[in-house]
Simulated scan of single mutants.
Amino acid sequence: MLEQLQQIKNWLEESRHTVVLTGAGMSTESGLADFRSKSGWWQQIDPRTVATTEALTHNYQLFQQFYSARIHALADITPHEGHRILADWQKRGLVQHIATQNVDGLHTLAGSHNVDELHGSIRSVRCQKCHAAAEMSSFLANEACRCGGRLRPNVVLFGENLPQQAWNSTLSHMKAAQLVIVIGTSLEVYPVSQLPHMTNGKTAYINLEIEQSHFDIMLKEKAGEALKIIDALL
Rank of each mutant, 00 (worst) to 15 (best):
M1F: 09
L2M: 13
L2F: 12
Q4I: 08
Q6E: 15
Q7P: 08
Q7T: 15
K9I: 08
K9N: 13
K9D: 12
K9T: 13
K9R: 14
L12K: 04
S15Q: 12
S15P: 14
T18K: 04
T18Q: 03
T18G: 00
T22Y: 03
A24D: 04
G25R: 04
G25V: 01
S27W: 05
S27G: 07
T28P: 00
T28G: 00
E29I: 07
E29Y: 03
S30C: 12
L32T: 02
F35H: 04
S37A: 06
K38V: 07
K38M: 08
G40I: 09
Q44Y: 08
D46W: 06
P47F: 05
P47N: 11
R48G: 12
R48V: 09
V50E: 01
V50L: 11
T53Q: 14
E54L: 14
E54S: 15
A55N: 07
L56Y: 11
T57Q: 13
Y60Q: 04
L62Q: 15
Q64E: 14
F66L: 02
Y67T: 06
A69G: 10
R70Q: 14
R70L: 14
R70N: 11
R70T: 07
I71S: 10
H72W: 09
A73K: 10
A75K: 15
P79V: 14
P79T: 07
G82P: 02
G82A: 02
H83G: 06
R84A: 10
R84D: 05
I85W: 00
I85S: 08
L86Q: 01
L86F: 01
D88R: 14
R92N: 13
L94P: 00
H97Q: 12
H97G: 02
H97D: 02
H97M: 07
I98E: 01
T100W: 00
N102S: 07
D104I: 05
D104N: 04
L106K: 01
L106W: 02
L106H: 00
H107M: 06
A110P: 04
H113S: 09
L118E: 01
I122T: 08
I122A: 09
C130L: 03
H131F: 13
A132E: 15
A133L: 15
S138L: 12
L140I: 13
C147W: 00
C147F: 02
G148R: 05
G149M: 03
R150S: 01
R150F: 07
R152D: 10
P153D: 00
P153N: 02
N154G: 05
V156F: 03
G159R: 15
G159S: 11
E160L: 08
E160A: 09
E160Q: 10
L162M: 12
L162I: 09
Q164E: 13
Q164T: 09
Q164R: 11
A166K: 05
W167N: 01
N168A: 07
A177S: 13
Q178L: 09
I181G: 04
V182Y: 03
I183N: 02
G184L: 09
L187Y: 04
E188F: 03
V192E: 03
V192P: 01
T199A: 00
N200A: 15
G201N: 05
G201K: 07
Y205C: 05
Y205M: 08
N207A: 04
N207C: 00
N207L: 00
L208E: 11
F215L: 06
L219F: 11
K220W: 07
I230R: 01
D231T: 07
A232W: 14
L233Q: 15
